[in-house]
């Protein structure tokens, strides 16, 4: 498996570490209800198929990436910088 880092180009997956599903969004601090917090910390869709997920390019540029990958085949269909994804979420645009 190779991940095409937007900064470094295609690199071996051994250079990256994995955090997990990129979908869960942390509930807002003081407002957060225990149920929402439980969902965020513990529950996952865990799909067999397309999955948006967070990877860290630790042995490269050290940026966080959002990777679209199929969990059945490991095929990667898109990689973007997690910063861009977070910024566009804030401004309401799609990354």
């Amino acid at each position: 498996m190779r991940i095409r880092c937007p900064h470094c180009g295609p690199r071996d997956n051994g250079e990256f570490s994995y955090l997990g599903d990129a979908a869960p969004i942390r509930p807002d601090g003081m407002e957060a209800q225990p149920v929402a917090m439980h969902d965020y910390v513990y529950l996952r869709d865990n799909p067999a198929g397309p999955h948006r997920e967070l990877w860290y390019h630790g042995a490269g540029c050290r940026s966080w990436l959002v990777v679209d990958r199929d969990t059945r085949t490991h095929e990667i269909t898109g990689v973007s910088s997690a910063r861009d994804v977070a910024l566009s979420r804030r401004t309401g645009e799609v990354a």
Binding site: M1, D12, N13, G14, S17, Y18, G20, D21, N46, A48, H51, E53, W55, R69, T71, R72, T73, H74
Partner: peptide, 12 residues
């Protein structure tokens, strides 16, 4: 170390 249903892993 990453979500997978592929029943095969990688070289790293």
């Amino acid at each position: 170390g990453y979500n997978s249903y592929a029943q095969r892993g990688n070289l790293a």
